[in-house]
C-alpha cells in the first residue's frame, strides 16, 4: 500500500502548495511593506546567486554544520555506546543530557559567545553540543532495544560472543547510528543558522540577521528558501531513505527531528 501511495501524484499536495503561495500573495498585496511579493523574493534569490553571496555564505554555514555534526555525532555515539553497555555511565550522564535537552539553544549561544567569542568556533560548538544528545539518545535507545528482546534469546540458544556481536549488537547499532545521524543532520543545519544569527560575522544566519537591520524582508525570505532547499535535499538524500530502510522492522517518525528546537 505504501509503495503505491508513495509514487502517486497527489493533487491535494499540489493544492496545499498552491494555497500557501496564493495566501502569501494575497497577504503581500494587502500588507504592502510587511510581506514581500513572491516575485521580489525570487529576484532577491537571483541577486544572491549572481553576486555569489549565496555560494559563499552557504559554504560557510555548511562547513560549520558538517564539522559540528561530525564532532557531535561522534561524541554522541561514543557516550551513547558507553552508556548503553554500562549503566553507571548512563546515570552519570543523565543530568548533563537532561540540562542539554531542556535548555533553549539561544541561552547556550549566549554563554558560548562569552566562551568562544563571535565566530566559527562558537557556531561549531553549538552545533556539536545540540547534535550530540540526538545521537546519544538514539544509540542508548537502540541498545536498550537489544537488551529487551534479543539477548534473552541469545542466552537461551547459547550463541557465541562472535555471533552475538555480529548478528545482534552491530545491526542494532547500525540502525541506531543511521537514525540518529539522519535526524542530527537536519538539526545541525538549523542550529548552525541560529548560532550565526545571534553571534557571527558570516554565514546564512548572519545574513538573515542583517536583513532585519536593513529591513529587507525579501532577502530574509530568499535565505529562508535556501534553508528549505537545504532541508529538502537532506530529507531526500538522507532522512527518507533511512526511514524507508528502517520501516521494514521499525516505525520511524520522519518528524522526530522537530523534537529538538
Amino acid at each position: 500500500m505504501n509503495a503505491s501511495t508513495g509514487s502517486r501524484i497527489k493533487p491535494f499536495y499540489i493544492l496545499g502548495v498552491a494555497c500557501i503561495l496564493i495566501a502569501w500573495e494575497l497577504v503581500a498585496v494587502r500588507m504592502t511593506g510587511a510581506l514581500p511579493r513572491l516575485r521580489a523574493v525570487g529576484e532577491s534569490l537571483l541577486l544572491l546567486a549572481e553576486t555569489s553571496e549565496l555560494g559563499q555564505q552557504l559554504a560557510i554555514s555548511l562547513h560549520r554544520s558538517l564539522t559540528g555534526l561530525t564532532i557531535g555525532a561522534a561524541l554522541g555515539f561514543f557516550t551513547g555506546a558507553a552508556a548503553g553497555f554500562c549503566k553507571p555511565v548512563y546515570y552519570l550522564l543523565k543530568p548533563l543530557i537532561g540540562i542539554l535537552l531542556s535548555s533553549p539553544a539561544v541561552v547556550v549561544v549566549m554563554l558560548a559567545m562569552v566562551w568562544f567569542g563571535v565566530g566559527s568556533s562558537m557556531a561549531i560548538f553549538i552545533t556539536a553540543l545540540f547534535t550530540m544528545p540526538i545521537m546519544y539518545v538514539s544509540v542508548v535507545e537502540g541498545m536498550e532495544l537489544i537488551d529487551a528482546d534479543l539477548l534473552e534469546m541469545a542466552a537461551v540458544y547459547r550463541l557465541s560472543r562472535w555471533t552475538l556481536w555480529w548478528s545482534i549488537y552491530l545491526p542494532a547499532l547500525a540502525t541506531a547510528i543511521l537514525t540518529g545521524f539522519a535526524f542530527a543532520a537536519g538539526t545541525a543545519f538549523r542550529k548552525t543558522v541560529m548560532a550565526e544569527l545571534l553571534g557571527s560575522n558570516d554565514g546564512i544566519g548572519f545574513a538573515m540577521a542583517m536583513t532585519r537591520f536593513n529591513l529587507d524582508a525579501a532577502r530574509l525570505f530568499a535565505w529562508v528558501a535556501v534553508c528549505l532547499v537545504v532541508a529538502g535535499v537532506l530529507e531526500f538524500v538522507l532522512v527518507s531513505p533511512v526511514a524507508r530502510y528502517l520501516q521494514r522492522w521499525r516505525t520511524v517518525s520522519s518528524d522526530a527531528g522537530v523534537v529538538h528546537e
Binding site: F189, R190, L197, L198, F221, V224, L228, G232, E235
Partner: peptide, 12 residues
C-alpha cells in the same frame, strides 16, 4: 514548519 530554522520563523 519542520524544515525552517526556528529563528528564521521568529524573524518572519
Amino acid at each position: 514548519l519542520v524544515a525552517v530554522p526556528p529563528v528564521a520563523l521568529a524573524l518572519f
